[in-house]
């Protein structure tokens, strides 16, 4: 009964929220158009012009070659960063002393400007795929570790005590208690890691590559090809936001389930 009464109100709320969000998108577009009117086409192309350019770019083979290059580097980076980060986070989380020792060090590593390390990465890995992957990994692995670590550390002690009281084996404890309890937090960490890894790969491409979307941007900057730069930026931003919205929905779903 109450559900049938509540439903229209919920629909109305959702509609209003969608309306508000549309409004914000429109405001952003207006700002963009205003910037274009103010600075002219030497700085930025208009929203309409950019969308048109991006649409024609999406139909061209060379563009997809660069997308593929970025996607491969990103996939490798994300895989390495996730496995490494989750494993490290779990290990440190379960070993309290090691966690207390390393957490501030990790936090410090997280906050250093990793761009300054790019000459080192280049010298170590050379130009190309491995440097890009390394860049992605150093950006993504620490937040994933820190999220996993804090998830395990923040585990309510009663869960583990209950597991002991029920005489669960360590494997059973990990499988049926630990994993479900920390999964949402780890997923959040992976979501954050996803964004930062992408950022790292793009930075790597800007400096250390002859392929990929980051390279397209830096190439556009160097050649003063404003339409290209703006269109690539638009495509990247939309893709990043789209992926993040999807991951966020999955994240919320996981949390609700608990």
């Amino acid at each position: 009964m109450s559900a049938t009464v509540a439903a229209p109100a919920r629909v109305r709320r959702t509609t209003r929220r969608n309306f508000d969000q549309l409004l914000i998108v429109l405001v952003l577009l207006a700002c963009w158009q205003g910037a274009y009117e103010y600075a002219g086409s030497v700085a930025v192309t208009s929203p309409a012009g950019t969308v048109a350019y991006a649409a024609s770019m999406l139909g061209q083979m060379w563009f997809w070659g660069d997308v593929g290059a970025t996607a491969i580097a990103f996939a490798y980076s994300l895989l390495i960063a996730s496995v490494l980060g989750v494993a490290l986070g779990l290990a440190l989380g379960l070993w309290r002393f090691a966690a207390d020792v390393t957490e501030p060090v990790l936090a410090a590593l997280y906050t250093i400007p990793k761009v300054t390390l790019y000459p080192v990465i280049l010298l170590l890995f050379g130009l190309g795929l491995s440097a890009k992957v390394a860049f992605g990994v150093i950006h993504g692995v620490i937040p994933i570790t820190l999220f996993t670590l804090s998830a395990v550390k923040g585990l309510p002690p009663v869960l583990l005590r209950t597991a002991r009281a029920m005489r669960l084996s360590p494997v059973q404890t990990i499988l049926w208690v630990l994993t479900p309890a920390v999964l949402p937090e780890i997923f959040t960490g992976l979501r954050v890691g996803f964004s930062l890894t992408l950022l790292g790969v793009l930075i790597g491409e800007m400096f250390a590559s002859q392929r990929g979307l980051g390279f397209l941007i830096i190439n556009g900057i160097n050649l003063h090809n404003v339409p290209l730069t703006t269109a690539v930026v638009l495509v990247i931003v939309l893709a990043a936001i789209g992926a993040n919205v999807a991951l966020l929905a999955a994240d919320r779903h996981l949390r609700r389930q608990r």
Partner: peptide
């Protein structure tokens, strides 16, 4: 949604635009 996705954006790519500005 904007806030949640903000840091997913590699916003330093806007930097050249800002320089032009």
């Amino acid at each position: 949604p904007l806030l949640a996705s903000y840091y997913a954006m590699p916003f330093f790519v806007f930097y050249p635009v800002l320089v032009a500005f």
